[in-house]
């Protein structure tokens, strides 16, 4: 996102992430962040995206955590529900301290309700237990 200020008014440019097309959406905002004008989005999801970006930008974090007694040292995990963008690096740092016991299966919850925000880290791969 990039932004330009003119007095109380701001124009921001976003690339919409809702589909691979990636429209470049120009939005003019008033003093209270109200959308005065929006252009460049090829469908209404573009407006929704920008509204969400202004209010509460969210992203998915894909990462991995350590596995104890597994056939592999790591298991991939992700936040199936998008989480607040600004907290991604915090959760990434936290996930580096997590270690789970093998076996781990797809769908296993590795971290639940992080910071009481309903954010989950869920395994997206399988690791067997080493004999």
């Amino acid at each position: 996102m990039s932004e330009q200020k003119q007095g109380d008014y701001r124009t921001r440019t976003d690339i919409c992430l809702r589909c691979p097309q990636g429209c470049e959406v120009q939005t003019m905002l008033g003093p209270d962040d109200e959308i005065l004008n929006i252009s460049g989005n090829k469908c209404k999801l573009g407006r929704e995206y920008v509204e969400q970006e202004i209010r509460d930008p969210r992203r998915v974090l894909p990462t991995s955590v350590r596995v104890k007694n597994g056939t592999r040292p790591l298991v991939p995990v992700w936040t199936p529900e998008p989480m607040p963008k600004g907290m991604i690096m915090d959760l990434a740092a936290e996930s580096r301290k997590i270690e789970v016991e093998a076996p781990v299966h797809v769908g296993d919850v590795v971290l639940d309700d992080w910071r009481g925000l309903g954010i989950r880290l869920v395994a997206s791969g399988e690791v067997e237990r080493a004999e």
Partner: peptide, 8 residues
């Protein structure tokens, strides 16, 4: 989906 889950 993440790649490993798709493969799975």
């Amino acid at each position: 989906l993440p790649g490993p889950e798709y493969a799975h």
